Simulated assay, not measured.
Amino acid sequence: MAEHEAAYCPVYAALNLLQEKWTLHIIRALLEGPKGFNELSRAIGGVNPATLSQRLEHLVSLGLVEKRVESHMPPRTRYSLTEAGRELEAVIAAIDRWARKNLKAPVA
């Protein structure tokens, strides 16, 4: 086995991916169903278009998100989760359970 293969840790790689800002927000929004770019941006809130585009490209390249071009004029693209992306629902559900149990809502 090559040295780089021996050093590979799937947990480390997954944590690096999931800790990227907006990645879990994108996954969570797409769990509700396919969305166009602007619809996805509104669902997430606060992400700038360049960052969203870069994150989506990365998630598509990893096989977690599928990009489907619906029209070229005007440009319309839909994003949806692949099976691998949908499997992250369990991760988000676990975070939700932990947060509801251990984090208090901010006081207004």
Rank of each mutant, 00 (worst) to 15 (best):
G33C: 01
R76M: 01
G45M: 01
S41A: 15
A50F: 12
E32G: 05
L17A: 06
P34L: 02
L17K: 03
R68M: 03
A99V: 11
V11I: 12
W98R: 05
K21I: 03
V11Y: 09
R28C: 02
V69G: 04
E83S: 15
Y12A: 13
L56P: 01
R42F: 04
E20F: 03
L103I: 12
P106Q: 05
L52N: 03
L24M: 13
L81Q: 11
K104C: 04
A94D: 13
L17G: 04
G36T: 09
W98C: 02
P34N: 08
L18K: 08
R68G: 04
E87C: 13
P106I: 05
L103C: 11
G33N: 04
H25K: 12
R100Y: 03
Y8D: 00
G36E: 06
M1A: 09
A50T: 14
E87V: 07
A94L: 10
R86S: 02
S53K: 15
S80V: 07
N38H: 00
K21Y: 02
V107T: 09
R55N: 02
I95K: 14
E66Y: 10
R100E: 04
K21M: 00
E20I: 04
L88Y: 14
P49Q: 14
T82N: 04
Q19K: 11
I95L: 15
A84L: 12
G85C: 11
T51E: 00
H58V: 03
E20D: 02
A84E: 06
E83G: 14
A94G: 08
K104Y: 10
L15R: 09
R100S: 06
A99H: 13
L17D: 07
A94Q: 11
F37W: 02
M73R: 15
P10W: 00
V65F: 06
L52F: 03
A84M: 09
I27C: 04
I27P: 00
S80G: 13
V11G: 01
R86P: 07
V69F: 10
L81K: 06
E3A: 10
R68Q: 05
K21R: 01
K21D: 02
A7Y: 15
P34K: 14
K67E: 13
P34H: 07
V69S: 07
A13D: 12
I44S: 06
R55E: 10
A14T: 15
S61Y: 13
G63Q: 04
E32F: 08
W22A: 02
A7C: 12
E89D: 12
P34C: 01
L24Y: 08
V11L: 12
L62V: 03
N38T: 08
Q19F: 13
P74D: 05
A84D: 10
S53C: 15
W98G: 00
T82P: 01
H25Q: 14
N48Y: 12
A105M: 00
A84V: 01
P75D: 02
P75I: 13
V91I: 10
L18P: 07
R55K: 09
D96M: 03
E70L: 13
A93D: 15
R97C: 11
K35N: 07
V107Y: 08
L56T: 10
K101L: 07
H25V: 11
P74K: 07
N48T: 05
V11M: 09
P34G: 13
V60C: 14
